[in-house]
């Protein structure tokens, strides 16, 4: 009997136990980021801008030169990095509280300026790290620790659709929403992420990718139920797809 190598972990990914909860999509998304960077041979020239949320330890998992940005400010930090080193590949990795709430001004303006960076946005509809409070992306009716009766549009407004908002800004070259809840979506997500990275690699400007992600712990669900919820509740409201692709249009 001989063995066939079916899967090899990207060498950019550290071989260590994960601190993420079982079923959390952060780990899956980290793997995708590492795979895409590696396949595009970008690892040696990449500067990662981390953010504040459950992914604050991204540098422990993806072995890249990394700077920690204050909560919400990663797009401003990435602007400083990219303007200093236009020859380097620069991306931010941000949660929904980080990007769509406290950091809304920074993401809107970095995008509108068309900074030549890539943004990996992880929307799990809650503030994961601080214990499951309401986020700007929390769904109507969803219960969190700070909207215990469920989010109500009269009181808290509607969830923000960042991928669509980004697509409406002049400086944005590419904006898409993906999910990693099943193999089919995972494969599509990888293709899309690669496209986002390629936009920057070819000097084409700002690329944005929103990942719908699960947070089984704060959703108080098993991993499989969380994947189910993502499919049944999140995707109908946050549709998957490409909302802007200037590169594709010019082809």
């Amino acid at each position: 009997m001989h063995e066939i190598l079916a899967y090899k972990s990207p060498s950019l990914l550290a071989d260590i136990p994960s601190h993420y909860c079982p079923g959390c999509h952060h780990g899956t998304i980290h793997k995708l980021v590492a795979q895409c960077l590696q396949e595009l041979e970008l690892g040696d020239d990449t500067i990662c801008v981390g953010s504040i949320g459950c992914s604050v330890f991204i540098y422990n998992y993806i072995l890249l030169d990394t700077v920690e940005a204050p909560h919400g400010r990663a797009p401003a930090v990435a602007t400083g990095v990219k303007r200093s080193r236009p020859d380097k590949f620069v991306f931010t990795y941000q949660g929904d509280g980080d990007l769509a709430s406290i950091g809304l001004a920074e993401i809107m303006h970095a995008a509108n300026r068309g900074e030549k960076i890539s943004v990996v946005f992880v929307n799990n509809t809650v503030y994961g790290m601080t214990g499951g409070q309401m986020a700007p992306t929390t769904m109507i009716g969803q219960k969190t620790t700070t909207c215990p009766g469920g989010r109500c549009s009269d009181r808290e407004g509607l969830p923000m659709k960042m991928a669509e908002i980004m697509a409406g800004l002049g400086g944005v070259s590419y904006s898409a929403r993906v999910a990693v809840n099943n193999i089919k979506n995972f494969k599509k997500a990888k293709k899309t992420l690669k496209q986002v990275f390629e936009i920057q690699k070819s000097g084409k400007g700002f690329g944005f990718i929103e990942f719908l992600a699960s947070c089984p712990t704060n959703w108080k669900m098993t991993s499989t139920d969380a994947n189910d919820r993502l499919k049944k509740e999140m995707i109908p409201f946050f549709p998957l797809g490409v909302f802007k692709d200037l590169q594709g249009e010019s082809k």
Binding site: V67, A76, V77, A78, G80, E106
Partner: peptide
């Protein structure tokens, strides 16, 4: 806020 964080990013380089 953004200006100071841009400084932080440039400083990191």
């Amino acid at each position: 806020v953004a200006a100071a964080n841009m400084l932080l990013g440039a400083a990191a380089c």
